[in-house]
Nucleic acid binder design. Structure first.
Lengths: 155, 155
DNA sequence: GGATAGTAGTAGCATTTGACACCATGTCGG
DNA sequence: CCGACATGGTGTCAAATGCTACTACTATCC
């Protein structure tokens, strides 16, 4: 960290730059292959994971918490998925305000295609990095998250 | 990199998550303090750097190339800055289609406030990291950029 | 047990952002 | 030089995203 501002070396800028590069690449591929926007495919990923949980699904609120997406974004993605027949809602057993999202058979089929493709993309981009470098990288990312969330707490 | 998909461990997701966290924090502060959106403050940063260059300013195209912002985004930010009296355009000596953006006195004054604030924010977020960790982190970011840009080239 | 405050989710509106079309100017091949 | 194509920049429109307000339901606390 220097004491003159050079945008090119300014960490928040670099982070945003790289993140956009990665996201745009992936977003384009997902739309082309599966007609899924990023929020939608995140929904699928979270719901697929949560189907193994005791409740057998995920609430929109849980999805928002885990992905830090706005609840409006989650709502819209959920509506789109239900309309496409990839997900269904069941009443939440303990709270009638809420629903549990789970995958339909069609949704599970799609997930079976989407997940390997995601991992393949990840490998293609990150193939040239060794495991230690990637581990250090993600560890730093998580430390940054923690630092900011702590700031937010503190105000 | 595992062979099952867990969103929480999926690198493109982690990257986007952290980047949004950082960007949102900074964006909020910049709007509150200076009424500057991110594209606008990037404009100021690039133009301030380029004023030292032979041409004494930056073209919008140059700004777009360096920040990877859409040329429309750059155009709008430039119009806003000129309207606010922070920047002015001078004719490009060699190309009448183009202009050079440079800072007005008011723009330079603002930059003198903005730049230290940016560095302070960066320090506040990244204070807990040692130099080696940050260096490794940014090196990895740049390698990711290179990997993706090479992919784009290849198609 | 009813008023009050809080939460899950949606709708409508405003803002932001990018895609596309366009104008003005510039460049290059003949 | 002059037509064909490329480039800098802006206007216009569509898509994406977030804010605010709202409905429906739940929890709490006298």
């Amino acid at each position: 960290m220097s004491d003159v501002l050079r945008l090119d070396a300014f960490l928040p800028f670099r982070l945003s730059f790289t993140s956009n590069l990665v996201s745009d690449t992936i977003a384009g591929i997902y739309v082309a292959l599966f007609d899924l926007r990023i929020p939608e495919w995140r929904l699928i990923a979270v719901v697929a994971e949560e189907e193994a949980s005791p409740l057998g699904g995920a609430t929109q609120q849980e999805i928002g918490r885990r992905t830090r997406m706005d609840k409006v974004t989650v709502s819209r993605a959920a509506i789109a998925m239900v309309e496409r027949g990839l997900m269904a809602r069941v009443a939440h057993p303990d709270d009638k305000r809420s629903h549990l999202l789970h995958l339909t058979d069609a949704g599970r089929d799609l997930y079976a295609q989407v997940a390997p493709k995601a991992l393949e993309l990840e490998r293609r981009i990150f193939a040239r990095f060794d495991a230690a470098e990637l581990a250090a990288f993600t560890a730093t990312l998580r430390k940054i998250d923690a630092a900011i969330l702590a700031e937010e707490q503190a105000g």
